[in-house]
């Protein structure tokens, strides 16, 4: 209820500012599109199917890139958690590469993987891998030693410990890492699609800039916001199911 009211309030505030500007002309009204203009543009693009196309293209890239990165982060996180030599070898390399802003590498991704889908998917995978790897690795490494002792004294083998204690104990941290990764994927898709893409929400925004259509830029941004909060809601729902028992219901 409060959520819906807050969203409606934000929409109302935007409408007030935009229509107020239209009436008073504080700035050129073209620069500040109204909800009506954005709605009308969306209606046109929904009818001709281009909006659905842009959305699907972006969503697919996000899902593929995120999926690859999540799989790699989980696998390497596990490796680092069970093998100290692997941890000592991997950590310095990853900690050196990690702080480099991924956007610095974006041109290289285009050179290496071409203008097609591969470069976008690879870029999203590369960007989202680091926070997810750090998050899963840390959660797996920081499992309470007392839980391991309790399980070992009930007869758990090394394998049992990993499967029945380390993984479930680390799960809350892993879920948070995945949520952060997904948020980042939506963040960087725009950058990836700014360069050499022929479809996608980033491309839609870029097109709005090139053809000077602020309404289209705003529409693209709003769609990214909607996509992001929809996915976040889905992840939160899964989280609550998976983590039942961790907090008071």
């Amino acid at each position: 209820m409060i959520r819906a009211a807050a969203l409606a309030g934000a929409l109302l505030a935007w409408a007030l500012v935009a229509y107020g500007n239209l009436a008073l002309e504080v700035m050129n009204p073209v620069l500040l599109p109204t909800p009506g203009e954005v709605g009308a543009l969306a209606a046109v693009q929904i009818r001709d199917g281009s909006l659905a196309h842009h959305l699907t293209v972006s969503a697919l890239r996000i899902v593929e890139g995120f999926g690859l990165a999540a799989a790699a982060a989980l696998a390497l996180g596990l490796l680092v958690a069970v093998s100290t030599p692997a941890r000592l070898a991997l950590e310095p390399v990853i900690e050196f590469v990690r702080p480099i802003p991924p956007l610095a590498f974006l041109p290289m991704f285009l050179v290496w993987f071409g203008l097609g889908e591969t470069s976008k998917v690879a870029f999203i995978a590369y960007t989202t891998f680091f926070p997810m790897f750090v998050g899963t690795g840390a959660s797996l490494l920081r499992v309470d030693v007392m839980l391991l002792r309790a399980a070992a004294s009930l007869g758990a083998s090394r394998r049992d410990l990993l499967r029945r204690v380390v993984l479930p104990a680390a799960l809350p941290g892993i879920v948070v890492a995945l949520r952060l990764g997904f948020g980042l994927a939506i963040f960087v898709i725009v950058g990836a699609e700014f360069m050499g893409a022929d479809a996608g929400l980033g491309n839609l925004i870029m097109e709005g800039r090139v053809f000077f259509n602020p309404a289209q830029i705003v529409m693209g941004a709003l769609l990214l916001g909607a996509l992001g909060s929809l996915v976040n809601a889905l992840l939160l729902m899964t989280e609550r199911r998976v983590l039942r028992g961790r907090a008071l219901p």
Binding site: D144, A150, S153, P168
Partner: peptide, 17 residues
């Protein structure tokens, strides 16, 4: 550690999941 020696800890150490 082994299953023939059960342990009860001061802080319970139940599996919260």
């Amino acid at each position: 550690p082994g299953p023939e020696r059960g342990v009860v800890f001061q802080e319970y150490v139940l599996f919260p999941w």
